[in-house]
Design a protein around this nucleic acid. Structure first.
Lengths: 255, 255
DNA sequence: ACTATACGAAATGTCTGACATTTATCGCAA
DNA sequence: TTGCGATAAATGTCAGACATTTCGTATAGT
């Protein structure tokens, strides 16, 4: 869809970064096909009544995350989804702030989690320090605390993110740790789509607690199994086929 | 080391991106401790005889990769290594271009590869298309071709990177695929440190070939084992202890 | 009719100077 | 000693002009 700048983008009066967020959301929403020309600086300046400097800074951010490609004389084009820097923390923020998440991206991120996260829990079980355990437990308590009240769904999601992120951190490897930032978009997308019914929430909390217990007891196998069960439930909620190979256990998971 | 801008940085006459590279290399070399103040814009302008615009663009790139943090009125400080965006492709480029690689980062990246890459090969064995196989084989042929001549070490390293990256791509998951960009710094660091002796190179090529064969035959188990052997050899060369748990096989690897 | 060169439009990249905004610090008075 | 306001210093923003790259087109030559 060669949508002009006129149609999709309501004007905005924020800082320079806010503009980048607006543009990024537009791209992530699929407003432009890969390879299509992006509006020129002049038009963006006019449309948002922003200085060229702010527009350029915003475009530089998009370019830094691989969303667009700019070349002097040719203009700006939207890059293919395969070239997007999914692991850039800024991208995670943008994806998480999107109200209608990009379906393919959510699936890909979740497929990654499904395969990697059980193993990360193994690492965490081997390397977690007391501080790591405290962080995980705090998040767990927060999840339980905000579970009953349906009005605190957002808070619950934050604790959920914190729980999984704490596990990534407990792996004590800088690379895995960085990936914890991928969790937010994946989890908020889940929250928006699936309304937890009363019973399943207790179930979910129990599964999370078992992961924590396994890590606390330094039992890698148990931590992996427990994490697989947590994700299996989430996968079912999301409607993702769990045909993706989960590490080296192709046997069907006992749901 | 509160090194002033005077001492560490030779002047440069490139574009805006070149300046960012110079500054990034300085930070990655450990010229500034975490939390220390970074030179002010004015000083950088003077030192590099660059306009404030170029300096600001360069600093924006560093900020985007998490290397520095800028706040109006306070100044610019270098962030902790834990906050660096290791998965930003730009960071990989900067790390690869560094002549004296950051030892901790290399170890962390390699520890990640050691744990994740066998599993990625499993995925590749399950999902590789004919095009993927062609890419892997082409890289393998390039490695063999440039193996004998010691003057083409750099070219050999490029094919090595291409080989492993092609496997990441063959996983057909966008997240794993992005991680292939981490390979370059890891591999070039290896090349610089270890001079392959004649016999071990044949051995290395043979191990790589077995990975390719396993993927071609759609044998995930074999692909995993073969990849573990490739990495075990590299780990030995790098002097990294392979005590890190490689997936779910804590038994010592048969080297 | 086809090719090659030269010109010019359009877009991004860069420079310069000024002003706005945020932050920390210092001095001063209650 | 504490609280408050003025000042300085740093980054953020704006505006306008110019440089550079790229592509299309027109034109001249073969």
């Amino acid at each position: 869809m060669t949508t002009l700048s006129q149609l999709p983008l309501p004007p905005e009066a924020g800082g320079a970064q806010a503009l980048a967020t607006t543009l990024a959301h537009a791209i992530l929403s699929g407003q432009w096909e890969s390879g299509e020309p992006f509006p020129r600086e002049r038009d963006l300046c006019e449309h948002f009544s922003a200085s060229r400097n702010r527009v350029r800074n915003a475009l530089a951010e998009l370019s830094g995350s691989g969303l667009i490609e700019r070349t002097a004389g040719r203009g700006t084009v939207v890059r293919d989804i395969e070239d997007w820097h999914l692991l850039d923390p800024q991208m995670s923020d943008w994806m998480a702030g999107l109200e209608a998440p990009h379906p393919q991206l959510i699936r890909e991120v979740f497929a990654f989690r499904l395969s990697a996260e059980p193993f990360i829990s193994e690492l965490a079980a081997l390397a977690a320090t007391a501080q790591d355990l405290a962080r995980i437990e705090a998040a767990l308590v927060g999840m339980c605390d905000s579970a009953t009240d349906p009005a605190r769904r957002e808070e619950h999601a934050e604790h959920d993110v914190a729980f999984h992120d704490a596990i990534y951190r407990a792996s004590h490897n800088l690379v895995w740790r960085q990936m914890g930032l991928l969790l937010r978009p994946s989890i908020v997308a889940l929250i928006q789509h699936s309304h937890h019914q009363a019973g399943s929430l207790d179930d979910s909390l129990d599964r999370h607690r078992r992961v924590f217990e396994a890590i606390r007891l330094r039992d890698p196998e148990a931590a992996r199994d427990a994490t697989e069960r947590v994700l299996a439930r989430t996968a079912a909620d999301l409607g993702v086929e769990n045909g993706t190979r989960s590490l080296k256990r192709p046997t069907s998971l006992p749901l």
